[in-house]
Simulated assay, not measured.
Amino acid sequence: MKVRGIKRGQIIELVEAIDIPDGTEVSVEIDDRQLLTPEQLQRRIQEFFNSPKDQADLKDLATTIAKMEAEEREMLELYYGSRDELADGDQRPLTSFIGSAKGSFATPEDVDQFIRQERDAWES
């Protein structure tokens, strides 16, 4: 069981109620990150980023991420074509496709003409 508490003098006050008998011995683990002053924390962060080993690790991480992004772009281009192909593609508005599919009509007049032809075919 893990519970949180706040130290006040020699007493640790629990943040939440727990169901254990009074007098039960407990062990306390101190989160030492909370013991750092803001200045100490800032110094630790600066030391991390100024360490040559850590900088090399960060450079390796950046290289790995760049490789993964390149692989992702390659896969997207494989399925969807390159960005250049998409940009140079057909720039017609979507409304220009109305009536262009087989069995569809571009205008109401075309529909009327088709219906007239069908009716004429029935009468003959």
Rank of each mutant, 00 (worst) to 15 (best):
M1T: 10
K2P: 05
V3H: 06
I6F: 01
R8F: 09
I11V: 10
E16H: 14
E16M: 07
G23Q: 14
T24D: 05
S27K: 08
S27R: 14
V28M: 15
I30G: 13
I30T: 15
R33W: 03
Q34N: 07
Q34W: 08
Q34F: 04
L35R: 06
E39C: 03
L41G: 15
Q42D: 13
R44E: 10
R44S: 11
Q46Y: 02
F48R: 13
N50P: 03
N50F: 04
Q55W: 04
Q55L: 08
L58G: 07
L58A: 13
T64L: 06
A66C: 07
A66F: 06
E69V: 06
A70F: 01
A70P: 00
E72Q: 12
M75W: 10
E77L: 01
L78M: 04
Y80E: 13
G81D: 10
L86H: 12
D88M: 11
R92M: 12
R92K: 11
P93C: 13
S96E: 12
A101V: 12
K102L: 06
A106L: 09
T107I: 14
P108H: 02
E109A: 09
D110P: 01
D112C: 12
F114Y: 07
I115R: 01
I115E: 07
R116I: 02
D120C: 04
W122K: 01
E123Q: 07
S124Y: 00
